[in-house]
Design a protein around this nucleic acid. Structure first.
Length: 421
DNA sequence: TCTGGGGTCCTAGGACCC
DNA sequence: TCTGGGGTCCTAGGACCC
């Protein structure tokens, strides 16, 4: 049996845990994406106001104010740190755990007795030790565990737990789960299923294999098998190295000057190289893209990307910088209002198996020592990029808009909560 | 005025190989 | 009626997830 443990309204719950001085417990709360752009998390009160995921901030400002609501900028330092605490508690329950996202994890509970009690214990311990509310769904497959979790949130909120340990319970939950609410069915597939007369997960579970295979590929077929209780989505215990790394962000304001964009791109490239080194990978190629704001009809539009192969796979900041700047030179055109720039990597190879270029004049050993030193310094400063290459400038261009940012309560001594006694 | 930033997997079609 | 057959690799695009 597999458990899916998922934090309720995770980002909102993190803000509520520390900002209680703002009386956020009973007010509608939303958390915004980067640049305070759109809604990425909502409290139950905010959901009740009709605010949906992805709503742009400026469109919900009025209704939120009318109901004494609060908005927060996203504070990933805080959420990441609380996520680690949750995962640490969870890891006590099973040696087989898959951290699926910042706020959820699958646990393999095979062979364990009294699953309802274990599930309730998980929920209680996380609440007692970390302070965050979670829901727990238990079932024979991942897809059904997701469904059980959703059912617990919807129909058993107080207990927060639902265990599908019999054929009847599985049938009952599938019968009340609409096709669009199944894990793995998005808007496109849901519309297609509805059109073909499938309304619930129970309907879909009875669809013939070859038809599912034809219409929804092997991905859909696996999903249907999971609904029938046959585990078909493997458990991934250790995080596999990323197959590509992408650092891209919209600017706080529009940028027109090449030098400003160079500075922003240089900073993204430095982050990208750092992430590569963290997972001990080198990239064989980078892609740089540049674009204007799609939503501004009054502006001329320009979207361009270019891929550059490196002479040898690399994860060194100066090497990547050199190629990224070269790429930008080739695609930048003056006269546009730019909104976003980004760098992607392709064809990652393990650091240890990089084929050296016979004609390379770079001194690899020296460079890798330099990068180690750089990473060491940044680690000491909790990831803050204190040492910069000239082209990174002061890092002041294209700053994210974060006007409603809460403090880093759990990772900065200076920002820790103070209690008056 | 203001609309995110990461990822994954799968398929189809074309180029190319023996 | 028939025109070889079986591969691999790459790219673009589409679906999904949080």
């Amino acid at each position: 049996m597999i458990a899916l443990v998922d934090c309720n309204n995770f980002y909102v719950s993190c803000e509520r845990l520390f900002n209680f001085n703002m009386d956020v417990l009973h007010r509608p709360v939303v958390v915004l994406s980067n640049n305070d752009g759109c809604v990425v998390a909502r409290s139950e009160e905010a959901k009740a106001l009709g605010i949906v995921m992805g709503d742009p901030a400026f469109k919900i400002e009025k209704i939120l104010t009318e109901h004494n609501g609060v908005m927060f900028s996203s504070n990933y330092t805080l959420y990441g740190s609380l996520s680690n605490r949750v995962m640490r508690v969870l890891s006590r329950y099973s040696p087989d755990m898959e951290v699926y996202s910042i706020d959820e994890a699958f646990l393999d509970l095979s062979g364990m007795k009294d699953l309802p009690a274990i599930a309730a214990g998980i929920r209680k311990n996380i609440f007692d030790e970390v302070g965050l509310p979670v829901s727990v769904g238990v079932a024979p497959t991942k897809t059904l565990a997701k469904m059980a979790n959703r059912f617990a949130k919807k129909h058993h909120r107080r207990a927060g737990v639902w265990v599908l340990d019999s054929e009847e319970k599985i049938r009952d939950v599938m019968a009340v789960t609409a096709v669009e609410d199944i894990w793995g069915i998005g808007a496109q597939y849901a519309a297609k299923l509805r059109q073909k007369g499938f309304q619930t997960a129970l309907d879909l579970s009875k669809a013939p294999d070859d038809w599912v295979r034809k219409e929804f590929t092997v991905v859909g077929l696996r999903l249907v098998h999971e609904l029938r209780g046959i585990p078909s989505i493997p458990f991934q215990e250790e995080a596999s190295p990323k197959k590509g790394i992408c650092v891209a962000r919209s600017f706080g304001q529009l940028l027109t000057e090449k030098n400003d964009i160079r500075e922003v791109l240089a900073n993204y490239t430095a982050i990208c190289a750092q992430r590569l080194r963290k997972q001990q990978s080198c990239t064989a190629a980078i892609q740089v893209f540049l674009s204007t704001n799609y939503f501004r009809n009054q502006d001329k539009q320009y979207h361009k990307s270019i891929t550059m192969r490196l002479p040898t796979p690399s994860n060194s900041t100066p090497t990547l910088l050199q190629h990224a700047m070269d790429a930008l030179d080739r695609i930048f055109r003056p006269g546009y209002n730019y909104k976003k720039v980004g760098i992607l990597t392709f064809d990652l190879v393990p650091e240890t198996s990089v084929q050296q270029n016979l004609f390379s004049e770079e001194d690899k050993t020296r460079e890798s020592k330099l990068m180690k030193a750089l990473d060491g310094i940044h680690q000491h400063f909790h990831g803050k990029q204190v040492v910069k290459f000239a082209v990174q400038g002061k890092g002041s261009k294209g700053q994210l808009k974060q006007e409603k940012l809460s403090k880093r309560f759990t990772t900065r001594l200076l920002e820790i909560l103070r209690a008056k006694i």
